[in-house]
Amino acid sequence: MTSRPSFVSWAADQLGCRTEGLALVHLGAAFDIVVCRVEDAARRNVPDPLAIVRNTQSGGNSRVATRTMLKHLGYNPAQLRIMHRLLGGSPGGWPGLLRLYVAGADLTDTQRRNWRRQLREAFGPAVVAGQERRGPIAS
């Protein structure tokens, strides 16, 4: 049986970043918060515990609780919105890193480019500086 990489290592590989860059945005701490929210939902027998962190599928109180917890990591409003979507998903069909990680799925090239751009715009170029990639996903 092979062991699964840590979430941050997996995310760095998927996004084409270095783990140090993702540490700058507290991705590991944000992931821990989201996992706690999912575990709480599972204890309460929520039919789809992973949906608890998704803006469009969770109830208003749950959304507020998740955002309040993430806000403690020091994100400004734009960064908070991006991190919540990055981890939890979006109404446009993005499943979120949490769901992809649990499923063992990979980001598409388009998803990778989109999230690298959003992270760079919200947090600066140091976050997405990283692994040498060739071709269209390097942007």
Rank of each mutant, 00 (worst) to 15 (best):
D109A: 13
S62M: 04
G130K: 05
P136H: 05
S9V: 14
A126T: 07
E20W: 03
V25A: 06
A129Y: 11
V128I: 01
V64F: 15
T110C: 02
G28D: 11
L73Y: 03
T68A: 08
V64Y: 14
V34N: 07
T2A: 09
A126C: 04
G92I: 00
G88N: 00
Q79T: 00
A126P: 02
R116E: 03
R44Q: 13
L27P: 04
E121C: 10
R85P: 08
R120G: 05
R85H: 15
M69G: 09
G104E: 08
N61V: 03
V102C: 10
G124R: 01
D13R: 06
V102D: 15
Q57L: 12
G21S: 08
A11F: 14
N45F: 10
E121S: 13
R112W: 08
K71F: 02
M1K: 08
P95C: 03
G74F: 00
G16L: 03
N76E: 03
G16Y: 01
R37E: 08
G130L: 01
S3N: 06
R85T: 15
D40C: 06
D109K: 04
E39Y: 07
L15I: 01
W115S: 03
A23Q: 14
P95G: 05
P77K: 05
W10Q: 00
V46W: 01
M83S: 09
L15D: 01
G60M: 14
P47D: 13
R67Y: 09
A41H: 05
G88S: 04
R37T: 06
H84N: 04
W94R: 01
Y101F: 15
G104P: 13
C17E: 11
F7I: 08
P91G: 15
R116S: 05
A29R: 14
L70F: 08
I82W: 05
S90Y: 14
P95M: 02
T19D: 13
Y75R: 12
N45Y: 09
G60N: 10
I82Q: 01
T68D: 07
L22H: 12
E132I: 14
A78G: 07
R54Y: 09
